[in-house]
Design a protein around this nucleic acid. Structure first.
Lengths: 111, 111
DNA sequence: TTGACACGAAACCTATTGGTTTCGTATAAT
DNA sequence: ATTATACGAAACCAATAGGTTTCGTGTCAA
């Protein structure tokens, strides 16, 4: 971890299961570190580090309120992922096209 | 690396930029290791290891032909990614809904 | 049949990652 | 005023990741 300061990329940020879990816990609610830590079998410090990695990737925003630090989800960086994935759509499209062809040919003696 | 044998997950597999590059090079063409290595400034062995990580995640399939090993892309495991991403769609949908509302309300004194 | 080629396996090295514990500090509660 | 709470920062540690070099082996070419 060690929160490789300054703009971590989103692919790396979501590579860790704990971080993915954090993102899903932070649905649309803003939650403080203590609350988030409750969901995991690891120290508060560890969770905090994960959150900083997410923050570096822009996937989470933090806000200090009194003595607690609250985190909320920001899905914007996930667009990059979506875009990356879309590159491979054409392969699925090919498969679907082939399937479509197969179905429409409607003859069991062809393949 | 060290190709953590047996079913690596797709999130981790795509976390590395070299591996993402490999996936895009392997568009719909099947290519041997030597050819793939040519695209990178690292040893054949290193590229081979990356390919094995991809293979463990099911993103690549290998086939021995003569003295070379040829690799081809398999996008199926990316469905998991797509599915995971779709969970967050509702947040984008919210934003779009809000934007829609904002636009349709058509009054500059609201926000 | 003798090289050259394409590769896998293994040993090894360094930096990074994911975790911990300890300590200090600002804020809230009594 | 004192204590408890919520946290950040830093030092530290073991395991993993990404890379290398070396060596052995099966396959193709001369």
């Amino acid at each position: 971890m060690e929160a490789a300061r300054n703009k971590q990329d989103v692919f790396q940020a979501i590579a860790d299961p704990t971080r993915r879990e954090l993102l899903s816990i932070l649905g649309d609610q803003e939650l403080p570190l203590k609350e988030l830590t409750g969901h995991f079998a690891m120290s508060r410090t560890a969770v905090s580090k994960h959150l900083h990695v997410l923050a570096d990737a822009g996937l989470v925003q933090e806000r200090k309120v009194g003595r607690e630090t609250r985190y909320r989800l920001n899905t914007d960086p996930l667009f990059e992922l979506k875009r990356w994935l879309s590159y491979f759509d054409r392969f699925w499209d090919n498969k679907l096209s082939q399937l479509k062809y197969y179905v429409e040919s409607d003859s069991s003696d062809e393949q």
